[in-house]
């Protein structure tokens, strides 16, 4: 159809002017600009950053901490003394929220980042070696997908036992490790299929025929071309990890008291939702802000990376990548 790359005579003059200044806009600058143009995404980013800051320095604004009991205010509604009220036992919810949000964000970030890294290495290795190696690694990956993660989490965190890791590790770290083990497979499969299709592209063949060593091809051609996918998967992975933490802690198999997280707070308050509603709704609201802001950011990032998203009509034509 119409040749969008066509240079029209009117623009040639302007272009000639620009050339003098070497204004070739950097790709990352374009992406940043597109992201910043997306109001929802920026709002998401602000909320997420605000929550992160709150979870790290919020503790300085209250004299209470998560284990200190205020005997004079048991089960108090939010007030100027206790910003979010207190629990049945007289523990300040604000202090617990600071700690819980931090734990949830940390778990999310660690799991999100590390799992994408693992997935990238695993996926690229499969695509790069192909053949038998690919087959065996794919089988292992599918077997892991088949394992009900839930039960393994439960086993790992409940294993009562002298010799088990439960004693050695705090429950949040244990949960982080288990979540990591079960979170990278989907991304790895996606990266594998993407790298495979890249490997068959002509520019990779061209590099091979030039005699460029394989290591360099992976580093210079493959990795930059799946970069956008990796960034998207980090935000997606962080969201999924935060959700998983809340889920498992909520039903009592994730993080265990005395450790605090959003999931623990929400789960612990279910029985008191009628009597002390703030104990339930405040951490639930925080969780929504957290996951919601990440989802908004993810949406903005996807649009920023998608080269076809700039045209209005084409924004809907986002093909799912072949997997």
């Amino acid at each position: 159809m119409t040749n969008l790359n066509a240079v029209d005579p009117a623009a040639v003059a302007e272009e000639a002017h620009l050339e003098g200044h070497e204004v070739v806009i950097n790709k990352s600058t374009i992406i940043l600009r597109r992201f910043l143009r997306n109001k929802t995404a920026v709002a998401g980013l602000i909320v997420f950053v605000a929550l992160t800051i709150f979870s790290f320095i919020g503790g300085f604004f209250t004299e209470w901490d998560k284990s200190k009991i205020d005997p004079f205010s048991i089960g108090m509604a939010p007030s100027s003394d206790h910003f979010f009220g207190t629990s049945q036992a007289g523990i300040d919810l604000y202090a617990q929220m600071v700690e819980g949000t931090r734990v949830s964000i940390l778990i999310g970030l660690v799991v999100g980042l590390v799992s994408v890294l693992v997935a990238a290495v695993y996926g690229c290795t499969m695509a790069y070696f192909g053949g038998k190696v690919d087959k065996v690694m794919l089988f292992f990956l599918e077997a892991l997908i088949m394992m009900p993660a839930l039960l393994v989490v439960a086993v790992a965190t409940n294993g009562g036992g002298g010799g088990s890791f439960k004693q050695a590790l705090p429950s949040w770290l244990l949960l982080t490790i288990v979540l990591l083990v079960f979170s990278w497979m989907g991304t790895a499969r996606l990266i594998r299929s993407m790298s495979m299709s890249l490997m068959s592209r002509d520019f990779v063949k061209a590099a091979q025929f030039m005699g460029v060593p394989a290591r360099r091809i992976v580093w210079r051609h493959l990795v930059p071309n799946i970069g956008s996918l990796l960034v998207l998967d980090i935000t997606r992975g962080v969201t999924a990890a935060i959700l998983a933490e809340v889920t498992f802690s909520f039903i009592g198999i994730g993080i265990k008291v005395p450790d605090v997280s959003l999931g623990v707070l929400i789960g612990g308050a279910t029985s008191q939702v009628q009597t002390y509603p703030w104990m339930f709704w405040v951490p639930l609201g925080a969780m929504f802000l957290l996951t919601g802001s990440l989802a908004m950011m993810n949406d903005g990032l996807r649009d920023a990376f998608d080269p076809s998203s700039s045209s209005v009509g084409k924004a809907k034509k986002k093909k799912k990548s072949t997997s």
Partner: peptide, 23 residues
Amino acid sequence: FMIFLTTSAGYLLAVSTLKPALL
């Protein structure tokens, strides 16, 4: 074959962490 593998792995994990004797 996959079910066999996952189940075996699950058993080995469970048997080395779950200690009914403690209860």
